[in-house]
Design a protein around this nucleic acid. Structure first.
Lengths: 331, 331
DNA sequence: CTATAATCTGACAACGTTAACGGGAAGGTT
DNA sequence: AACCTTCCCGTTAACGTTGTCAGATTATAG
């Protein structure tokens, strides 16, 4: 079960190793006949180039590091799906890591990715600090931030239009007559949480209303977080009539809480999610949400990264993908 | 931004490259003083070993290939999550690929993984054929099948106790008084689908009942599949009173269909899923399901693989993880 | 004080590939 | 015929690491 190397091919074809290499790499300095001969031999011997050796020599591994907050979160799953599909098209492999939104883990993940000598990195930063990303900058490895960005750092990123999304969701609820609109937001060090909150406030302002600080919760990232926060928020006497959740993932937790508290959605409580993941439509009632396309975002980020890897440094590209309200039955 | 190599460290420390290597790899043949000196220099220079070179030399890449049916399916997401977490503990990196349950894509994925010279492979085979897996056997690269296995192939695998799961789900429905129990099964070339079906039949037999062939659908893998199949099945005059779905993913589609047809769950239609993914509890009503632990399965498979990688070939290990009925409100 | 063992270290080769360089042959031009 | 080009091809040297071996130094024993 020994591996077939270039040497074997060269020997068999009666040429030098280098010529064999040239034939297989479509280099111009080779006659058509020898090229064909080498290719035939390579084919018959079942030659597969050793990517390690190639990578060592050429300083290109053909892999990218993908670092996301939580692999089990459907938003990230779809993101990764889009990335993986795109990476395959470009002949790159994906090395996946999850951070569980932990800063130390993020640092470790970046170090591992750099140690693997990936050609580029796609990351949804935890945003609990900038050191990790600055390390990334210092490393010289191309990278693209996904879904979140740093105002203070001049890097490539692909995010959704979170402010507009927050506005659309809130406006929609206001137009439906809601006034006590809670927001179960993500942690406020995350840009998307900040901007969605800004959109939320903006909608209130636009309609001449005052938001109630007591209805603002932050730090929700998971189903569990959403569930707990909702239980807490819905327990009080002055409970909200509507909830804008940071993500579908969080909204699912809210729906669970509503279920358990026997609140009818949307009559007793309206709910809006974010991301338009696969399951919103399966909820009862189907979840109104703000849609971007996570897969599309992954694809765009990957394309941007590959462009960076090939073409080298240019001015940072900052993409803000459009969102729209996907109205279903939960509002 | 040039990379620090062993040579640099050696030069700075005034020793040979080899000695530096020994110091950093905890080899015994080195004096404590020089070792400390080298380590200090390495630290101060920020030396990071080049994994490519190491891999090339030692034939160990420290990576494993993970190939699953669909990255966006929460079952697989959780599986991958468990794998990634475990791999990190063992200092392995994960190269992820999705096949979308396509056989050609599976073949390609395996070839890519082998080309990347991964130390091992974790795969949920599409089971549309055995060529791909036989290629894997021939390659000599250790691998472990996850969630599905081939009766005719003597390989390592980690699966759930699908037959028992199918039995438990069906028995539960029978005990609740259901007789017209549909099964929205996965494709019958998949072992888990076959065995769940066997469990389904077994339960009918045990209770002296006859299943209705008209209530058996197969080929459902996604939310969409479940939705369509359910619409079709629930449209007829003699519709089932209960549905056993191949997975939570499929069950979500069923719930969606029930929603749209205005069927009350569980009164008009009882639904049981499989896998106990994160969202079952958020459904309305909360989904009764058969629980294994996808993350746990991933972890076990990874551990088994690493054991294989380290210790080499032994008798195939075949694990069948226990399942239990997680009863909620959908039945 | 010598022989021998034990300990540490460095030179060298190798892993499989690609890049740089140079040389030989063929053909065309003066 | 001498020269230059052009086109192929092979030799050599890397990439950064680890394993093998032999040599050097010191310690130990006789």
């Amino acid at each position: 079960m020994k591996r077939v190397t270039l040497k074997d091919v060269a020997l068999e074809a009666g040429v030098s190793i280098n010529t064999a290499s040239r034939a297989l790499n479509n280099k111009p300095e080779i006659s058509p006949e020898t090229k064909e001969k080498v290719l035939k031999v390579a084919q018959s011997l079942g030659y597969r180039p050793n990517r390690l050796a190639r990578a060592l020599r050429s300083n290109k591994t053909g892999t990218i590091g993908v670092i996301v907050g939580d692999i089990a979160n459907p938003y990230f799953s779809m993101l990764v799906r889009g990335i993986e599909r795109t990476a395959r098209q470009f002949d790159y492999s994906v090395i996946l890591q999850g951070t569980d939104e932990d800063y130390d883990r993020e640092e470790e993940a970046i170090e591992i990715a750099l140690a693997e000598q990936v050609d580029g990195i796609l990351i949804t930063p935890t945003q609990k600090g900038t050191d990790t990303i600055e390390e990334l900058v210092a490393s010289g490895t191309p990278f693209v931030l996904m879904s979140r960005y740093f105002k203070e750092l001049d890097t490539d990123y692909v995010v959704m239009d979170d402010r507009r999304g927050g506005f659309l969701a809130t406006e929609h609820l206001i137009q439906r007559g809601h006034r006590r609109i809670a927001i179960l937001n993500g942690p406020l060090h995350i840009s998307s949480a900040i901007e969605r909150y800004e959109g939320y406030l903006q909608a209130f302002k636009r309609y001449g209303l005052d938001p109630d600080k007591a209805l603002v919760a932050e730090g929700c990232l998971t189903v569990e977080d959403g569930y707990r926060a909702a239980l807490c928020l819905l327990d009080g006497p002055e409970r909200p009539t509507a909830v804008f959740a940071f993500s579908d993932f969080v909204a699912f937790g809210v729906l669970r809480a509503a279920n358990e508290l026997d609140l009818r959605v949307p009559d007793d409580l309206a709910v809006v999610g974010f991301d338009d993941t696969l399951f919103g439509v399966c909820m009862r009632p189907p979840l109104t949400t703000v849609g971007g396309s996570p897969e599309g975002l992954g694809e765009q980020a990957a394309r941007l990264l590959f462009d960076r890897v090939d073409r080298g440094q240019t001015d940072p590209v900052k993409l803000r993908l459009p969102v729209r309200l996907v109205q279903r039955k939960s509002t």
